[in-house]
């Protein structure tokens, strides 16, 4: 199967939020975001709650109308498609949500749940269709006899397997995975991670993997984009972003993940962010991260940082690479050492 490339350029999603009885204010949940997902590739989109990562995923599915920007999928601009055309397109772009307890209809048997996408998108004989359901169930590691059961009879991890089965049964080219393992127990979380990677190897689908845990996103994705307050602040190959973060926010996210080694965890140098995330209704001028950034300079309040190309193939939006210490693509972590030396 030859898939299509998803190219998102300058995507913005704006909500009008009531601020008083008669006043409304625009909230830029996603602000001029661009990224690309090649066939068979996984792009990780990582950020904290309120960063706009889920809204960006929903905009691709047209569950939220983009206010501007392009979502090019092969030859089609998804933002320009009619409702009917978009419905047909959903065969190729599927979704797995975070909460497996609310994303499966409790009154439908597993067989019905999994048949639904096939009924909508393909005209198959009932026998063939059932066989496809059984095959897909086995692919996600569930016995075919379970098809007659209802969602409440399954654990969280099993339900997430069913949600994945429903997403892949129509052979999609792209699956939007919105925090698919965040609600699961630790022992089942890694089962689902491995399953999703196996499926990708088998059917060659691409993933947009949305998550808040940088370590999980790193495991799943070839490239990673980091979002803060509606904007992408750093993108690059996952290994680079994880091991040599060039944006202070990425470095902070990284050092917030505890290392499972008591001695190391208690002795290592970390960036602990002070202050709280500013309201997206009234984002800071210049660089949006400057109010919590330990390295903020004067220019950060005045000028929005430009895209700075990083040698490993990534992009970082931080003045540190062009002004002040001029990191020039080096990891921001070395600044901590410098600060201590002063």
């Amino acid at each position: 199967m030859t898939g299509r490339t998803l190219t998102v350029s300058d995507l913005s999603v704006t909500f009008k939020v009531p601020t008083g009885p008669f006043t409304r204010k625009p909230l830029h949940a996603v602000d001029r975001v661009s990224f690309e997902i090649a066939p068979g590739e996984t792009l990780g989109l990582v950020g904290e709650s309120g960063s706009g990562k889920s809204t960006a995923g929903q905009a691709i599915l047209q569950l939220n109308k983009p206010s501007s920007g392009k979502i090019q999928f092969g030859d089609d601009d998804l933002a320009q498609l009619s409702k009917r055309q978009m419905r047909a397109m959903r065969r190729n772009i599927q979704v797995v949500f975070q909460d497996p307890y609310s994303s499966l209809n409790p009154s439908m048997r597993i067989l019905q749940l999994l048949e639904e996408p096939l009924k909508l998108h393909e005209s198959l004989d009932a026998d063939v269709r059932r066989e496809r359901v059984f095959e897909t169930l086995e692919m996600v590691g569930l016995r075919r006899s379970l098809a007659e059961r209802y969602p409440h009879e399954f654990s969280g991890g099993q339900r997430q397997r069913i949600a994945i089965a429903r997403a892949i049964i129509s052979n999609p080219e792209l699956v939007i995975c919105d925090e698919p393992v965040s609600a699961l127990d630790v022992s089942t979380q890694s089962q689902i991670i491995n399953l999703m990677r196996d499926i990708q190897d088998k059917i060659g689908t691409s993933y947009l993997f949305i998550g808040h845990d940088l370590a999980v996103v790193r495991l799943m994705s070839t490239r990673t984009a980091v979002m803060y307050l509606g904007q992408i602040v750093e993108t690059g190959p996952s290994a680079e972003v994880y091991e040599r973060p060039t944006h202070p926010y990425t470095a902070a996210l990284n050092s917030a993940i505890p290392v499972p080694d008591p001695e190391l965890q208690r002795s290592r140098q970390r960036i602990v962010l002070s202050g709280d995330q500013p309201s997206p209704l009234d984002p800071p001028s210049g660089c949006r991260f400057r109010t919590r950034c330990p390295f903020a300079m004067e220019i950060c309040a005045e000028v929005e940082p430009p895209d700075f190309p990083i040698p490993g193939g990534g992009v970082s939006r931080c003045h540190l690479h062009v002004e002040g210490p001029k990191l020039g693509g080096e990891s921001v972590m070395q600044l901590i050492g410098k600060q201590d030396a002063l």
């Binding site: 630790v186 022992s187 089942t188 979380q189 890694s190 089962q191 991670i193 491995n194 845990d213 370590a215 999980v216 790193r218 495991l219 994880y242 993940i257 505890p258 290392v259 499972p260």
Partner: peptide
């Protein structure tokens, strides 16, 4: 311990599951 993504990343072992 082995199911932690941090462990898989630090050791280069594939992520283990129970």
């Amino acid at each position: 311990l082995d199911t932690m993504p941090q462990v898989a990343l630090a050791t280069g072992k594939p992520v283990a599951s129970i």
